[in-house]
Design a binder for these strands. Structure first.
Length: 473
RNA sequence: GUCCCCAUCGUCUAGAGGCCUAGGACGUCGCCCUUUCAAGGCGAUAACAUGGGUUCGAAUCCCAUUGGGGACGCCA
């Protein structure tokens, strides 16, 4: 029995990745199987090494380490898809040679037009297969001319495909609903669909345990397995974690970065316990259990399918319970590693060195580097002569811009915020004061950009969002 | 719009036809403990979406409706 978690290294390490990883790993360990980490970095534009490292760090923080993966190796490597492009190319070519796939030369404009037409006609599929039966000579000619193209799979034109889901039973989908999916992009990289199927087969993955959002594309995968003549793995789709309003969990409505939870001071074991309660329960309905107990009793039959809301209140309660059960020495150790470990104090101290007269001044002047605080009310957040509505709009823009910062350092933060001065039209001093109050809760602080760099992206995002929310007219 | 998934207290869930006048937990509200605040103890609040079947019997099975969610990318 072999399972995998396959995150894509774009952006911040996601709580959903940890959720899926937990269930994969628990299932594998229950049955003596192997848990594989595979990095799906087939999106050249968005994948970054930092993001990949953050995924490693966050999963390890939670104790969700893997038996095989890019950094630990294993007999089925490489485990990074960008290092396997030749494999995908060869497999795509094989399907073309067998007449199961074809070159498609549709341009972005053509596709946009097709999408519009399909939408107008109330159809789901957009691509109209116009290049599916191009004469061989023309294909050769266009290829020789170096025309940009992709490789698409020939989907069956009629009939239906049955997806067997381990939790839901059979799901039948009309093949008419299915596009001729793209296998190989014009940059020569595989799409998720191809890379995923090829790797799961080559890595001998027996159970694909992933999020529910994949259900609609699973028939494509089933058909791809068939095209290759391979046996498909067992598919198990887990419910999606939700925001308070029941939509799919998202950074705009909920802290989703595992970095946020780590830096805010959630204990990894509490976090894991909490994730284990999302859609799953112990036979005795225990609220508190550790990973080993979860593994011992793990059974997908105990899964409930309604999408669970990620409720911070309950997480807080659980985390508090774990803290209360720590022996004083153990708590001290935790505090020390959280507060002083990994050089955090060394980053904070220089920022206040010039500003404190007694060592004791350190504590009140640095609270926001450590603890959370409630967002200030609008009257304290607003500089003189700034309208709340304007501040609100500006902060929404700032928050989005901060979300998009790829490398979290002083220079990027500064560049982003200065740009926001232009975008929002607020005076520099006004905008920076709002941001300062949002991020630190105080008017007088060490330099803003450096402080934000030290506080970390995840907490800054959260605080900016909270302040924005407070400013909502 | 089209396709798919889902449906028990506000939230996380137990419940696999009679054990259910539906249990636990978080939250909320009381009371107790207490110099304060927590924690803790006790109690209260609150749900089987609706309508049809099937059955002696349905939260549990089937169908429809409604509601919610997801997908419809050369992103994963």
């Amino acid at each position: 029995m072999r399972v995998r978690v396959a995150p894509s290294p774009t952006g911040d390490p996601h709580v959903g990745t940890a959720y899926i990883a937990l269930f994969n790993k628990a299932f594998a360990e229950k049955h003596g199987g192997r848990f594989v980490l595979r990095i799906e970095d087939t999106d050249q534009k968005r994948s970054t090494a930092e993001s990949e490292q953050a995924i490693f760090d966050s999963l390890r923080w939670l104790g969700l380490d893997w038996h095989e993966g890019p950094d630990v190796g294993g007999p089925y490597g490489p485990y990074r898809q960008s290092e396997r492009t030749e494999i995908y190319r060869a497999h795509a070519q094989r399907l073309v040679d067998e007449g199961r796939a074809y070159h498609c030369f549709a341009t972005a404009e053509e596709l946009a037009e097709m999408r519009e037409t399909a939408l107008a006609e109330g159809r789901r599929t957009a691509y109209d297969r116009r290049y599916r039966d191009l004469p061989r000579e023309e294909v050769e000619r266009r290829l020789a001319a170096g025309e940009s193209h992709v490789i698409r799979l020939k989907m069956p034109l009629g009939g239906s495909t049955r997806v067997k889901d381990g939790l839901r039973g059979g799901i039948d989908i009309d093949n008419a609903e299915l596009d001729d999916q793209i296998l190989l992009k014009s940059d020569g990289f595989p799409t998720y669909h191809l890379a995923n199927v090829v790797d799961d087969h080559l890595m001998e993955i027996t159970h694909v345990i992933r999020a529910e959002e994949w259900i609609p594309s699973t028939p494509k995968h089933v058909l791809l397995y068939e095209a290759f003549g391979w046996q498909a793995p067992v598919f198990i789709h887990l419910p999606l974690l939700r925001n308070k309003d029941k939509t799919k969990i998202s950074k705009r409505k909920n802290p989703v970065s595992l970095e946020y939870y780590r830096t805010t001071g959630y204990l990894p074991e509490a976090m894991l316990n909490f994730l284990g309660r999302m859609g799953w329960s112990m036979p005795d309905e225990a609220e508190k259990f550790d990973y080993a107990q979860m593994v011992e009793h793990f059974d997908f039959g105990r899964m409930s399918l309604g999408g669970p809301i990620f409720d911070l209140d309950k997480l807080d309660w659980l985390n508090g319970m774990y803290i209360r059960e720590l022996e004083p020495e153990a708590l001290v150790a935790r505090l020390q590693s959280w507060l002083l470990g990994s050089g955090y104090l060394a980053e904070v101290a220089p920022l206040v060195r010039e500003r404190i007269k007694r060592l004791g001044d350190f504590v009140p002047s640095t609270t926001f580097f450590f603890g959370p605080f409630d967002a200030l009310p609008p009257e304290q957040l607003l500089p003189k002569k700034v309208e709340q509505a304007d501040a609100y709009k500006a902060m929404k823009s700032v928050t989005d811009a901060i979300d998009a910062v790829a490398t979290w350092d002083e220079a990027s933060i500064e560049a982003t915020l200065r740009e926001q001065v232009e975008v929002t039209g607020l005076k520099l001093r006004d905008l920076f004061m709002i941001v300062r109050l949002a991020v630190t809760g105080q008017k007088a602080t060490p330099p803003l950009f450096e402080s934000m760099a030290v506080i970390g992206k995840a907490r800054c995002q959260y605080r900016l969002r909270e302040a924005t929310h407070a400013l909502k007219p």
